[in-house]
Amino acid sequence: MRGQLEDDIVRVGEVLQAATTDSILAMNESFASTTLRDAIFLGKKVLQKVLAMDLLCVYVTFIEELAAFDPAVVSMVSTVVPEHPVERTFKVVRAPADGLAYAIAIAEKYNLTYERLRRKIAP
């Protein structure tokens, strides 16, 4: 039996094995199933390999450290409507990562804040 992270690592390893300089690699929230520290470590390992192979990679992640990992990495950010952060613009622009995911705004949309949940769930 393999854990989720082990699966992830094995799969990424296989993909990297098969990739060539002419490949395009797309990574989507890989290594989500571990602590932040481990995810940074593993993400950096992937980027090292990508830079070494000099292939094109699009890496979707919440880890801002990866966006600033190397001068060759271009940081892009998906944007929200500034005065109404629940609303996504679905526009991805070239900008440094600011560490804001606006997730709490979405949690509020679903009434998942402490105050609102307490009111909803009777003790």
């Binding site: 992270l5 690592i9 094995v10 990424v12 094995q17 571990t34 602590t35 470590f41 390992k45 090292q48």
Partner: peptide, 18 residues
């Protein structure tokens, strides 16, 4: 709780693509 889940040694065991 610890800040690591030992993902690092998992990498050395089954990943190690570098």
């Amino acid at each position: 709780p610890l800040p690591t889940s030992f993902g690092e040694d998992l990498y050395y065991r089954v990943g190690r693509w570098m």
